[in-house]
Nucleic acid binder design. Structure first.
Lengths: 401, 401
DNA sequence: ATTTTAAATTCGACAGTCAAATTAAATAAT
DNA sequence: ATTATTTAATTTGACTGTCGAATTTAAAAT
């Protein structure tokens, strides 16, 4: 209980500065409800520790006013650098951000393997991190923290990967192992959650307290933000949107079960339908086949349209269920795969409105947000920034005490 | 920010006393992390205002120990009495509780109408409340607050019933209207949420921070407790579990849409299947028909079993989706309708385990909790108690300030 | 009676917030 | 140029509230 109150204030002020960008103390006071006096003392502390900085001048804003000019405060970007890593199926992407969240450097690399044992993965991650820093004027030692996202089931509290398609063994204590190896704090999470983090920090969820992010990559992922924080189930395996059942004894899913949403909307689900009775597919590359499918549909091919149509309707049904369960303010469909545009078509989104319980209030906003390849890594970096900020604040509290 | 810290302490201590029953100050201190000194001052305040009381003696516990004996503190039941009202389709039940949560009196009455305009409903509620108090040695004036639950979509923050099958008009400001009429605070909510409240305060969710309650009455309802508090969507229309879609273009639901879970598991859904091609149903009373259906199934009738079987599997699928989305620690199937036992059969619950994403951690516990008729009203009363406690604490803070 | 033990209270130090007064830094007026 | 005005930020002093340590209280053990 001791020193707790000040910690709350510090956290409130720091996160407010991060959220609404450069702003003067007086507005901080108004927005947080903390008195000017206290804002002064807290910001002095944060300045002292280098977490924030005053912006030299404010070049003469809109209208010239008299009185002592405001002094803007902002997060000091150059105090820390962090790396965000997204480990994908056969590739890895790494983004290096400063503490303000500016992407300083991007790195992408193909990987020879898809599945690793713990030692191999640690070695690979370390090596690729070094590669990524080489492209900048930084070294590995300059990074203050690392965020890592990978597919699978991740116990965030313990830092353990319960299961991942990228790992040969279960229950790998990846966070601590990597942290020890790198000599700096590491934060790991499921990759769908990282997209939610990216949206929350840098994207369309920036000032929204409750929203849901649905991603389509290979599978269908989901991140839930409630009350400004990521909701993870009790075992870290909630939010398995792709494996919610949309049909009793339905189509077979990669996971071995039947009727999963994923088994109706993922690449493989669409392509296997075409495998019988058409010659539309057959190249070795699924991406190529998907392109052919979409092309055919656009050209008016009835079979192709039928396949895509059902997928879209199943997807709409899944989304409608999310609305019925969560009644969120906002759903963000986030991803980079343009070829899945058909799932995000306006009429799909419109049809959701019809299969949702009706109220007088406006239905939740559903928006499509297309990101580049770096989105995932950015989310991982956001997670590292958040964790690092928390660590630093705690350290600060201990120092003062 | 002023006086806030003390408020936090007060709330923590009061709710801890309520949660773990009579306990001495020293344990309060340990459990809340608040120092003994502060516990003394806060409990003194609460005692002063009559919210809690010391239990005269603790008759000599297990082993005789020396030292100053502990003095247990408990919520003072007789300081307040509240009524909880559940407005059902053609009946109303009212429970009167003391501030400790003890059910002092139960009342049930059939209603002549199912749907009311605002004035009629207010009059009915007031009249029935008076009837309910008549059975006790209390009068309406002795009630300090009233909780009311009814089916429909309720905006809890504004106290407005957006829509209800019991009301002829939409957007009725029921809370304030009833509050004004009765001259005491009123709290209203959706009835499924009230069951969750009942479980949280008096039932199986007592010391669980995150759980989901599914109720089967006429429809299928759900209440979600996350982080110790009820989750309501942004428009107060989340948690519509009964209207999540389990089949694309599926069975027609009462709500006019297709494929709702309710359209597969509710009474009317089962009976309408039997209406064609069997003579199993046909009495005027659905309850009687349901009994006949279940009887036939037990006797081995293939059609009856087929009907019940599909309903059970659909129900399991819906529950599995909840698990996949929320990954809760606990799901409580709460209700009184024994005739729906088939939905709660062990093999149904077991089958859920198979259609849920597998992890090493144990799957969520799914328990069946059968309550009596008063459950709903008890939940409404719990809501009133909670709200009243909050009001009283706020008042206390203002008085001191 | 006296000692021992443990709960509860009291006391004084300290942390932290805030309103009000003061200082700082700019423009406007003379 | 100098003074007045205006507004942001800081400083000051009062006050709230928490906590550890010392003290008091109420019992059993000696």
């Amino acid at each position: 209980m001791l020193g707790e109150q000040r910690s709350i204030g510090r956290r409130a002020i720091l996160s407010q500065i991060r959220k609404v960008g450069p702003l003067p103390r007086i507005e901080l006071s108004e927005q947080t409800g903390i008195s000017r006096a206290t804002v002064t003392t807290i910001t002095a502390e944060l300045l002292d520790h280098g977490l924030i900085e005053e912006i030299p001048v404010e070049p003469k804003s809109k209208d010239l006013k008299r009185g002592r000019p405001k002094v803007d405060l902002k997060i000091r970007g150059d105090i820390f650098h962090v790396a965000g890593i997204k480990l994908a199926n056969k590739s890895i992407s790494i983004g290096i951000c400063d503490f303000e969240g500016n992407l300083v450097s991007e790195y992408w690399s193909a990987l020879p393997q898809t599945i690793y044992d713990e030692g191999e993965l640690l070695a690979t991650l370390t090596a690729e991190l070094e590669n990524a820093t080489r492209a900048t004027n930084l070294t590995l030692a300059d990074l203050s923290a690392v965020g890592l996202g990978l597919a699978g089931i991740v116990d965030v509290v313990e830092g353990v990967v319960r299961w991942s398609p990228s790992l040969t063994t279960r229950n790998v204590k990846l966070r601590d192992a990597l942290s020890q190896r790198l000599g700096k704090p590491v934060f790991i999470d499921n990759d769908a959650n990282l997209v939610a983090k990216a949206e929350q920090y840098f994207g369309r969820g920036k000032n929204v307290s409750d929203f849901i992010v649905v991603t389509i990559e290979n599978g269908v992922g989901m991140g839930i933000v409630l009350n400004n924080q990521l909701y993870r189930g009790t075992r870290g395996c909630g939010a398995e949107f792709g494996h919610t059942k949309v049909h009793l004894d339905g189509a077979l899913c990669r996971c071995g079960q039947r009727g999963c949403l994923e088994a109706y909307v993922a690449d493989y689900a669409l392509l296997r339908e075409l495998a019988v009775g058409t010659d539309m597919v057959g190249s070795a590359d699924p991406a190529e086949d998907m392109a052919a499918l979409i092309e055919a549909a656009k050209a008016g091919d009835k079979t192709a349209n039928s396949v895509l149509d059902r997928a879209a309707r199943m997807f709409a049904m899944g989304l409608a269920n999310l609305v019925n369960i969560f009644d969120p303010k906002l759903i963000i469909l986030s991803g980079e795969r343009m070829q899945l545009d058909f799932l995000f078509a306006d009429d799909v989104l419109a049809s959701i409105r019809d299969i949702v319980v009706q109220v007088d209030a406006p239905p939740p906003e559903i928006i499509v947000h297309k990101w580049g390849d770096m989105m995932w890594a950015t989310g991982a970096a956001a997670y590292a920034i958040e964790g690092l900020g928390e660590l630093t604040l705690r350290e600060l509290a201990d120092n003062v005490a």
